[in-house]
Computed example of a mutant assay.
Amino acid sequence: MTETWKYALIGGLLALPFTALAAWRSPENISLGMVVVGSAIAGYLVKRRGGNSTATGLRAGLIGGFPAIWVVNKLFWAIPSIPNPPWFQAVGVAMILVVGGIILVVVALFGVIAGRFGGWLAERRGHGGTANARGSA
């Protein structure tokens, strides 16, 4: 397992239960705060080892924010219960798929931004992940 995936799993699995709880309690009002925190932690940790904080944040965001897509499940079950012509139901399914894609893009974007922030924070604190070029004095 690469360090990118290792730290993405740490950050994503940190956020996953909180996102799942938010999606279960109030599916129409999900907070992605823990996705941001988990992705920032993952970006910070991987940057300390010289890894790519953007890729790690993206993966951590998708892992931690995946429960946000569970909202789409309720929409799929609502389509057959409404008496509409088949073409209208097909349009409804297409719209739900688009909404699911938008949710994934938003979660991934939050993860990327937070991962980059975590990487920036690691660099600010002196963790570039590279060997000391000046040598020891």
Score class of each variant (00 low, 15 high):
12 G>K: 00
11 G>N: 09
5 W>I: 00
17 P>Y: 09
99 V>E: 04
130 T>A: 05
123 E>A: 05
60 A>D: 03
3 E>V: 07
67 P>Q: 15
61 G>Y: 03
40 A>S: 09
84 N>Y: 04
72 V>L: 05
69 I>T: 15
55 A>P: 06
126 G>F: 11
59 R>H: 09
31 S>W: 07
7 Y>M: 04
120 W>S: 11
21 L>V: 05
38 G>D: 01
12 G>I: 00
52 N>A: 08
69 I>E: 10
18 F>E: 00
28 E>R: 10
6 K>M: 06
92 G>S: 15
49 R>A: 05
90 A>W: 05
1 M>G: 01
94 A>V: 11
18 F>T: 02
11 G>Q: 05
58 L>W: 12
46 V>T: 13
73 N>V: 02
136 S>L: 15
117 F>G: 01
10 I>G: 00
35 V>L: 13
72 V>E: 03
70 W>E: 00
90 A>R: 09
100 G>T: 06
38 G>S: 02
102 I>W: 02
94 A>T: 11
41 I>A: 02
130 T>W: 10
128 G>V: 01
125 R>D: 10
27 P>Q: 11
100 G>Q: 11
135 G>Y: 14
74 K>I: 07
97 L>A: 14
124 R>E: 13
36 V>H: 03
136 S>P: 07
23 A>M: 04
124 R>V: 11
87 W>S: 15
73 N>C: 03
136 S>V: 12
90 A>E: 14
87 W>E: 14
36 V>P: 02
114 A>M: 12
65 G>K: 02
85 P>A: 15
90 A>G: 11
11 G>S: 10
135 G>I: 10
102 I>D: 00
101 G>R: 06
101 G>Q: 05
54 T>I: 14
40 A>T: 14
64 G>M: 02
43 G>F: 10
49 R>Y: 07
137 A>R: 12
48 R>Y: 03
114 A>T: 12
107 V>E: 04
28 E>I: 08
54 T>Y: 11
2 T>M: 00
40 A>M: 15
86 P>G: 05
40 A>I: 13
23 A>F: 00
39 S>M: 08
11 G>D: 04
81 S>Q: 04
136 S>I: 15
130 T>L: 04
123 E>P: 01
65 G>P: 04
14 L>C: 06
35 V>G: 06
